Computed example of a mutant assay.
Amino acid sequence: MKLGIEGRRALIVGSSSGIGAGIAVMLAAEGVEVIVHGRSLENAEAVVAEIRAAGGRASALIGVLDKPEAVERLAAETLATGPIDILVNSAGATISVRGWFEVPMEVWQQQYQFSTLYAVQLIRALVPAMRERGWGRVLNISSGAAFKPMAFHPEYSAAKLALHTIACSLARELGDCGVTINTLISGLVMTMNTRAMIQKTAQAQGFTETGVELERRVLREVWRSAIPIARAGRVEELAAAACFLVSEQAAYITGASLRVDGGGAGYVN
């Protein structure tokens, strides 16, 4: 299937590693000019180098999205090099792993800034021009924790659920203008951090399996995972779904949330 996005320009926020990096690499392979954004220049440039080595077009922008003025600066630097057709909001991190009554209010505020408010600000800065040109794609990367929250880090689940609400609301605001906005809901994904957690857990339990068998045993016996496919997702699997949602082929999909979580609707019981 041809995605019909060759020659488009994309800003992938939070793409110097993990799911965002996977999306950047796959979009570039589809002929999209990609702006790789992250907090680490070294990591962002490594993704850019990978894309260029494969014949793609990419550049790097660095910035921490901790304040509105920092997000404004990112938007200005992005537009200074040309219009943006595709915006992927993939930034976000778990700031706290504390419970409801242990999470300070400032952490709630920080979490919303890192996971939600930056996306709102970038949408406001970049989408009006997409609307004028009659074509655009916005994709928010959320988490299964938004729909199956835990008792701990409630601020993370709430901030990620807000991305879904934003997409539903904006889809109605945009209507039939050629711009769509959707949400990709990620389950457990085999990033470097996930792999490290699995290895640490396996060592503590004395497990001797390797590869997927070790992964499945940790998920089943220790983490009590409810993922029917019984493994973590791969970055490439998330990236493929993301590329479809920002493609020409997905023109009739807007305001939707696509779960890519192995059937788990969240990744723990």
Rank of each mutant, 00 (worst) to 15 (best):
residue 125 A to C: 11
residue 190 M to R: 15
residue 120 V to F: 11
residue 118 Y to C: 07
residue 154 P to Y: 12
residue 191 T to S: 15
residue 132 E to W: 03
residue 192 M to K: 13
residue 137 R to Y: 12
residue 215 E to K: 03
residue 139 L to Y: 12
residue 164 H to L: 13
residue 199 Q to E: 15
residue 156 Y to V: 10
residue 170 L to F: 08
residue 226 A to H: 11
residue 142 S to Y: 05
residue 178 G to F: 07
residue 203 Q to H: 05
residue 138 V to S: 01
residue 132 E to R: 14
residue 148 K to P: 01
residue 234 R to V: 01
residue 181 I to Y: 03
residue 141 I to T: 08
residue 194 T to W: 05
residue 190 M to G: 00
residue 176 D to R: 14
residue 127 V to Q: 07
residue 173 E to P: 00
residue 126 L to K: 03
residue 169 S to N: 14
residue 148 K to C: 10
residue 207 F to V: 05
residue 211 G to L: 05
residue 141 I to K: 10
residue 154 P to C: 13
residue 181 I to H: 07
residue 173 E to L: 11
residue 203 Q to S: 13
residue 167 A to K: 10
residue 137 R to V: 12
residue 232 A to P: 13
residue 151 A to E: 14
residue 145 A to D: 08
residue 157 S to A: 15
residue 163 L to I: 11
residue 199 Q to I: 00
residue 177 C to Q: 09
residue 152 F to E: 10
residue 160 K to N: 10
residue 125 A to Q: 08
residue 207 F to E: 03
residue 169 S to A: 15
residue 198 I to F: 11
residue 215 E to N: 01
residue 191 T to L: 08
residue 131 R to N: 08
residue 236 E to D: 14
residue 123 I to G: 06
residue 235 V to M: 10
residue 175 G to D: 11
residue 139 L to C: 12
residue 229 I to Y: 10
residue 213 E to Q: 11
residue 184 L to F: 06
residue 133 R to D: 02
residue 186 S to K: 09
residue 231 R to H: 14
residue 185 I to Y: 00
residue 148 K to Q: 14
residue 136 G to K: 01
residue 125 A to S: 14
residue 223 W to I: 02
residue 192 M to Y: 01
residue 134 G to F: 07
residue 169 S to F: 06
residue 228 P to A: 11
residue 142 S to H: 05
residue 118 Y to L: 04
residue 148 K to R: 15
residue 171 A to D: 15
residue 161 L to P: 00
residue 170 L to Q: 11
residue 204 A to M: 05
residue 149 P to L: 06
residue 217 R to N: 03
residue 135 W to V: 07
residue 171 A to M: 12
residue 124 R to F: 00
residue 165 T to F: 09
residue 211 G to M: 02
residue 156 Y to H: 12
residue 136 G to E: 05
residue 128 P to D: 07
residue 122 L to K: 09
residue 131 R to E: 15
residue 196 A to L: 05
residue 141 I to S: 04
residue 235 V to S: 05
residue 215 E to H: 01
residue 151 A to W: 06
residue 181 I to F: 06
residue 233 G to T: 08
residue 228 P to E: 12
